[in-house]
Amino acid sequence: MIDLDALDWQLIRALNADATQNAGALGRRLGLSQPATWRRIRRLRSEGILRPRRLRLNAEQAGFGVTVFLGVKLATKGRVSLEDFERAASAIPEVQRVDHVLGLYDYRLRVVAQDLADFERVLRRRVMTLPGVGDVEANVLLSEERLAGPMLG
C-alpha cells in the first residue's frame, strides 16, 4: 500500500471531479508545477491508485431507457467454470458489468435495454442461456445518484 499525502488526496479529488483536466491546470490549483503534478499522476497510476480512463456511456441518451440489475445464482457451480460464465456474460452487448459477489447470488449483472420488451428478449434469449444459470432476480433501476465515496468527498 502506498502512503498518500494531502496533495495526493487533493489531486485524486480534483481528478475524480473532472478527469479531463491537464496537469498544468491541476498544478495551478494545487500550487505545484506541471512536471511535479504529472509525476504525481504517473506515480498514482503506476501504483494502481488511478485506473485507466474508460468511456462512460449515457445509456438513456444512446436509446437504452431501461437499466436492470440481475442477481444470478449458478445452478451447477461444480460443472461450469466461473470464467466460462463471466466470459459468456461479458460477451452480451447489453451487459455493462459482470460482478462476482458474495451473498444470495453469485453474480450481479448490470443490463441495459431499449425498453422492458427489449429487456425480456435479452433475458430470455441471452441471459437465461448462459452456462450454469440457475435462479435469476431482476431489479429495475428507477434513478441513479453518483456519490463520491467516503475517501473522496
Rank of each mutant, 00 (worst) to 15 (best):
L4G: 01
L7C: 05
L7F: 06
D8G: 00
Q10D: 14
L11K: 06
R13Y: 03
R13L: 06
L15E: 03
N16R: 15
A17N: 09
A19K: 14
T20H: 13
Q21K: 15
N22R: 15
A25R: 14
A25Y: 10
G27A: 11
R28A: 14
R29K: 15
G31V: 05
S33M: 02
Q34L: 05
P35F: 10
A36M: 11
T37I: 07
T37M: 07
W38V: 01
R39Q: 13
R40A: 04
R40E: 04
I41S: 01
I41C: 04
R42A: 11
R43L: 09
L44F: 01
R45P: 00
S46Y: 00
E47Y: 01
I49R: 00
L50Q: 03
R51V: 05
R56E: 12
R56V: 14
L57I: 15
N58V: 09
A59L: 12
E60K: 13
E60R: 13
Q61M: 13
Q61V: 10
F64G: 03
G65P: 00
G65I: 00
T67Y: 01
F69P: 01
L70P: 00
G71N: 09
A75F: 06
K77L: 14
S81G: 10
F85A: 03
R87A: 13
A89H: 08
A91W: 04
P93H: 06
P93W: 05
P93I: 08
V95M: 13
R97L: 14
V98N: 09
V98K: 10
D99P: 01
H100V: 11
H100A: 11
L102Q: 07
G103A: 10
L104Y: 11
Y105A: 12
D106K: 11
L109I: 08
L109V: 07
R110D: 01
V112G: 02
A113W: 07
A113K: 13
D115I: 07
D115H: 08
D115M: 05
D115E: 06
D115C: 08
A117L: 12
F119Q: 04
E120N: 14
R121Q: 12
R121C: 05
L123H: 13
L123F: 15
R124H: 13
R125M: 08
V127Y: 06
T129W: 03
L130V: 11
L130W: 09
G132F: 06
A138T: 13
A138N: 09
N139K: 08
V140Y: 01
L141D: 01
R146W: 04
L147K: 09
A148P: 07
G149W: 03
G149R: 04
P150S: 14
P150R: 14
L152I: 15
L152H: 04
G153T: 08
G153D: 07
